Computed example of a mutant assay.
Amino acid sequence: MYFKIGGIVGAIAILLSNGSAIAQDAQRYLTVGHDKLGNSVALDTKTIKGTTYKLYGIYGDGIFETTFDASCKESRLFLNRIAIYGLDGQLLQEDQEKGEIPFVANSSPGKGMQIVCQKIGAGGW
């Protein structure tokens, strides 16, 4: 699959679509799971701020960006935003409805949370 997208959206799409990237991108985007079609879901390690993190994956002909907040001490996970970008990198859809979601350790959001909680040195992770 070939994507013609600019900036960060392009790097993510290339990484997720063919599994290869230059070393810099490979270190930036960590695969934390796969969707039902077998496409990678990646954690963007450069955008982690405290316990807020973003996951990216393929969505139709574009990508999705999902932003989460983790409460490491309580093992609680909160969804903050979902955005869908088209092939040109343009924002197509955005949902900023916030709310708690179940923490499932072996899910993509759960694996992302584990990495984030370990990074900040939260106890028990």
Rank of each mutant, 00 (worst) to 15 (best):
M1P: 02
Y2G: 06
Y2L: 12
A11Y: 06
I14Y: 01
I14W: 01
L15T: 05
L16C: 14
G19V: 10
S20T: 13
A21G: 15
A21L: 12
I22R: 07
I22A: 10
A23C: 07
Q24W: 05
D25H: 10
A26P: 01
A26L: 12
Q27T: 09
R28Y: 04
Y29H: 03
L30W: 06
L30C: 03
T31W: 00
V32E: 05
G33I: 05
H34S: 06
H34P: 01
H34W: 06
D35K: 11
K36N: 14
K36I: 05
L37M: 05
L37I: 01
G38I: 03
N39R: 14
N39D: 14
S40C: 04
S40L: 11
A42R: 09
L43I: 08
T45Q: 14
T47D: 14
T47V: 10
G50S: 10
T52F: 06
K54H: 14
L55G: 00
Y56A: 09
I58E: 03
Y59L: 12
Y59T: 05
Y59V: 02
G60F: 07
G60V: 02
D61I: 04
F64N: 08
T66Y: 07
T66R: 15
F68W: 15
A70M: 09
S71G: 13
C72E: 07
K73W: 06
K73V: 06
S75F: 10
S75Y: 11
S75C: 02
R76N: 05
L77V: 03
L77P: 09
N80A: 08
R81S: 08
A83M: 10
I84L: 12
I84A: 02
L87P: 10
G89H: 01
Q90R: 15
L91A: 00
L92A: 06
Q93E: 13
E97F: 05
K98Q: 15
K98L: 01
E100K: 05
E100R: 13
I101A: 05
F103S: 01
F103R: 04
S107H: 08
P109Q: 08
G110Y: 01
M113H: 01
I115N: 07
V116K: 07
C117W: 01
K119T: 10
I120H: 05
I120Y: 10
G123F: 10
